[in-house]
């Protein structure tokens, strides 16, 4: 009984953290981009702009939810939900901190702790792209359609490299359970040192997965107006944006878990704080990249994914396999 209560509490807490995290990641991005670009960013609502996300949320909810006449109404309505759902689900398996003891129970700080946590995380994060493809398709707008096509082209070019890049970690830890991967790093040291190249590949593909600059092809403001979400407005548009930012937090969380020792850190701060500090640093790098780089062209991205990232990650994967099995 108490376990079910704990589970429900954990789900609600996680949702609150993700929603709050989304709101403030977005605010942080806007403020940081502002500073990068000689502007101040939103600083009017509340002290230093801290209540800006609230104002945005109210605005988004009150806006009229428009739908093009010719749009496929069911798919059009479902696409953003799908995107957001996929983004949220991944976080269920990420361990945010070391297990804690409460009410005589040992509680791990994740919703679920399956043996194949890594696979589940990747499966759900890949699902997110379908929301974008379907949304682009259902809008009956040519720009949205192009955005959707680009999203699918992009997905097939980075997914493989992404999958291969984390296999090294999996082999070194000897488990696909995310909690155990973190624990393995306590013994072996953080994995980003031996796995630096896979980490870079993972990070590159993670940027592609979240559709952010320089891989923001499905959106590509200067080319496709707003890409797949051109026709969306109000809360449905907000859901796409939410999905993007939650995805960004998720892939940062995964990067921290897989390569930077998860919640591990000196004991003067609680483990969960360490986790969020590391995550915030990764997210900042995302924002930094956005302020600096131009966009890939989508055929170049495909050849980059297939001809550069995939071979490198595959070779590194073979090398790690040889090393772990003791051949080398």
């Amino acid at each position: 009984m108490i376990q079910i209560v704990l589970l429900i509490v954990k789900v609600i807490l996680l949702l609150l953290i993700l929603m709050g995290g989304f709101a403030y990641t977005m605010l942080a991005e806007r403020r940081f981009l502002g500073f990068f670009q000689l502007r101040l960013g939103p600083n009017r609502v509340g002290p230093g702009g801290l209540f800006q996300p609230l104002a945005d949320a109210v605005k988004m909810m009150l806006k009229e939810d428009l739908m093009p006449l010719q749009a496929d109404s069911v798919v059009y309505r479902l696409a953003p939900v799908f995107s957001l759902l996929a983004a949220l689900s991944v976080d269920a398996v990420i361990p945010f901190g070391a297990p804690i003891h409460i009410f005589g129970q040992t509680v791990s700080l994740d919703i679920a702790n399956p043996g194949i946590g890594l696979l589940i995380a990747f499966a759900f994060s890949s699902l997110g792209i379908y929301g974008i493809v379907l949304g682009g398709w259902a809008s009956q707008n040519k720009y949205s359609l192009l955005g959707g096509i680009r999203a699918s082209a992009q997905m097939i070019s980075y997914e493989l490299a992404m999958g291969l890049s984390v296999l090294g970690v999996l082999m070194m830890a000897g488990t696909a359970n995310l909690e155990n991967i973190v624990l393995a790093q306590r013994a072996q040291g953080w994995f980003f040192l031996p796995q630096i190249i896979p980490f870079l590949i993972y990070f590159t593909t993670a940027v592609a997965e979240t559709n952010r600059t320089p891989f923001d092809l499905p959106e590509a403001e200067s080319e496709l107006v707003a890409g797949y979400h051109t026709e969306y407005s109000g809360i449905r548009f907000a859901m796409f944006v939410m999905a993007e930012y939650i995805n960004m937090m998720t892939v940062s969380g995964l990067a921290v878990t897989l390569f930077f020792g998860g919640w591990l850190g000196p004991s003067f701060l609680p483990p969960i704080i360490w986790f969020f500090i590391k995550m915030a640093i990764v997210i900042f790098v995302f924002i930094w990249i956005r302020a600096t780089f131009p966009r890939f062209r989508y055929d170049k991205l495909m050849s980059f994914g297939w001809k550069v990232l995939l071979p490198i990650s595959f070779i590194y994967f073979l090398g790690t396999a040889a090393f772990v099995s003791g051949i080398l």
């Binding site: 981009l33 990068f36 131009p294 966009r295």
Partner: peptide, 9 residues
């Protein structure tokens, strides 16, 4: 237009 925003500013 190529996607790098900051230089404009």
């Amino acid at each position: 237009d190529l996607g790098a925003m900051s230089l404009f500013f």
